[in-house]
Simulated assay, not measured.
Amino acid sequence: MPLVSKKGKNMPESPIRKLVPYAEKAYKANKTVYHLNIGQPDIKSPKIAMDAVANHHIKTLAYTRSEGSQEYREKIAEYYHKNNIPAEADDIVVTTGGSEALLFAMGSIADVDDEIIIPEPFYANYNGFATASGINIVPVISKIENNFALPPISEFEKLITPKTKAILICNPGNPTGYLYSKEEIQALAKLVLKHDLFLVADEVYREFTYDGSKHYSILAEESLAENGILIDSVSKRYSMCGARIGCLVSRNKEVISTALKFAQARLSPPTFAQIASEAALQTPQRYFDEVIVEYQDRRDTLVNALKEIPGVKVGVPKGAFYCIVQLPIKNSDKFAQWLLEDFDDNGETVMVAPAAGFYSSPGVGLNEVRIAYVIKKESLIRAVEILKIALEKYKD
């Protein structure tokens, strides 16, 4: 029998999606499942985006340019300027989601066996993107005890080798919700310039910051004109995960021309999704104001409820809509499966994302889960109540 590739065998399972078969069994057993496992917002997509597709006048659904339509890229550039991020249309390659932007970035800056340093825990699919690209992730651990703040720069510097090509951050962070300060971004900028590395920032949650905190983009740093690569997406900003539209942004012309070759190989991003995404850029500020108030209220509700459970420790997010929760258990994979297979409270249970998959260091995060607060406050309250009962009954 022919064998699959080593690369294929090494591709990690999604810690978010691998439990889906168990959830489906729970549905068949007529259980109600509160989904705390996946960052799919329940917020409605902007009407202006949906109307743009519904009211289109396209006669032939043709290819667009590989880098995305000129009109859409110009509108994205306008959006960035409003957010004090200097970027022009020619600095942007539109991609099929932020995921493809990350793949294009890795393919453009690193060769097989090169290294990228990433503070962990990090978005689980970074592991998959790196495996697909033949790149090695070198983790630097951030800790729940200091709310997953940026590790000391000296810890990064220890890890830099001739194979190091970049440092990658997610800001605000998935799965931690940590928001890097301007001073932390500037410290990273100084480090990558010293060692002639790229700084790649996944900024898809830029709009979602709390407690009066402000997001600071890496491209706001003029010193990073040649070293900065921004990853973006409409998925979370406009609650348009299914649109699958993102972009790679850099003022480094060689990076853009290289990423464009990857874009040409897959032809073009989807036309209707670009139409929706272009229209979404006209979404009024009140939409975000209301969403941020809602998410901050959900965050406070979730964190306060979790803190009432004995033995539970939780990081307090300053952005995005996730938090890492440390539980009084040994193995969150087994616990998450047990929740779906063997437990319910009055026919209800919860689905969480085991956090070990958000680390690349072996044996780290085994007693942690990621929770996404993308369901209504009343559901969050009930979900935490169920979690508390489950922890009381669970035996490792």
Rank of each mutant, 00 (worst) to 15 (best):
P2S: 05
L3H: 11
K7N: 13
K9R: 07
E13C: 05
I16H: 05
I16W: 03
L19R: 08
P21S: 12
E24V: 05
Y27P: 02
V33R: 12
L36I: 10
L36D: 09
I38D: 15
P41W: 13
K44L: 12
P46Y: 04
I48G: 05
I48N: 04
A49L: 10
A49F: 13
A52K: 13
H56W: 10
I58S: 08
T64M: 12
S69C: 15
K75Y: 15
Y80W: 15
N83R: 15
I85A: 02
P86Y: 14
P86E: 06
A87M: 01
D90M: 07
T95S: 11
E100Y: 15
A101H: 06
F104T: 02
M106W: 03
G107S: 09
A110P: 04
A110H: 03
V112H: 13
D113M: 11
E115S: 04
I117F: 11
P119C: 02
E120K: 11
Y123M: 12
G128I: 01
F129I: 01
I135K: 08
K143V: 11
I144D: 02
N146I: 00
L150Q: 07
F156C: 01
F156K: 05
K158V: 00
P162M: 08
P162L: 06
K163N: 09
L168I: 13
I169P: 10
P172W: 03
P175H: 05
G177P: 05
Y180P: 00
E184Q: 14
E184K: 06
A187T: 00
A187W: 03
K190H: 13
L191K: 06
L193T: 00
D196S: 09
L197H: 07
L199Y: 02
R206K: 13
F208D: 05
T209S: 03
G212R: 03
Y216W: 10
E222M: 04
A225G: 00
I229P: 07
I229A: 00
D232H: 12
S235K: 08
C241N: 10
I245V: 14
I245H: 02
I245T: 02
N252R: 09
I256L: 08
S257T: 09
K261L: 10
A273V: 00
Q274M: 08
Q274R: 05
S277D: 01
A280D: 06
Q285D: 08
R286V: 14
R286A: 05
Y287S: 03
F288T: 00
V293P: 01
V293L: 15
D297E: 15
E308T: 15
G311S: 13
K313Q: 10
V316Y: 04
G319P: 10
F321T: 01
N331Y: 09
K334I: 09
Q337H: 03
W338L: 06
N346M: 08
M351K: 08
M351R: 14
P354C: 04
A356R: 08
G357S: 06
S360F: 00
S361Y: 05
P362I: 01
G363Q: 08
G365W: 12
G365I: 07
L366M: 13
E368V: 01
E368S: 10
V369Y: 07
V369K: 04
Y373P: 07
I375T: 09
K376Q: 15
E378S: 15
A383Q: 07
D396V: 00
D396E: 14
